[in-house]
Design a protein around this nucleic acid. Structure first.
Lengths: 70, 70
DNA sequence: AGCAAAAGTGTATTATATTGCATTTTTATT
DNA sequence: AATAAAAATGCAATATAATACACTTTTGCT
């Protein structure tokens, strides 16, 4: 999963849940600036930061064997 | 996905593929010390590091909506 | 248009991930 | 047991993620 996708997924999910960046940042205990950077595809977040956000977003980070395209 | 699981999954997958830490680190262009730390559950890797390893391991990092327990 | 809330950006600081190198420990093979 | 390969660990240097704060821009509403 490319970093770009990660940012899109987080932003989209946040939009669906109708919460602001401030709210998500606070609930996830992640810096607001950090969340903004992630949603804008800047930087390279750590797994723990993504996990914190995922938890609040009702999501999970998975590492799986890639399905072979058919 | 907890960080602990991530390390286990990577180590297990590497074992299945029968490659050494040195080989994986070189192929993934990740520092050997970094890979060792990850496999031993130390630290908090960045998404890009996990992605580099995943690529070589034929895996992928996914961020998905959590299935509700039944 | 005017306003307010939300989102985006620039910069500096702090914390820590990544890395190489040297060394030790463990594992596996003969 | 001796050896060799693989893995683990300690340490120091460098790169950069996380963060706060101030400010600008965009968005949406009346």
């Amino acid at each position: 999963m490319a970093l770009l996708n990660l940012s899109k997924i987080i932003k989209h999910r946040r939009d669906v849940l109708k919460i602001t960046q401030e709210q998500l940042a606070e609930m996830a205990e992640v810096g607001l600036r950090t969340l903004k950077s992630i949603e804008n595809g800047k930087g390279n977040p750590t797994v723990s930061t993504i996990n914190k956000l995922a938890k609040v977003l009702g999501m999970e980070l998975k590492l799986e064997i890639k399905k072979t395209g058919f």
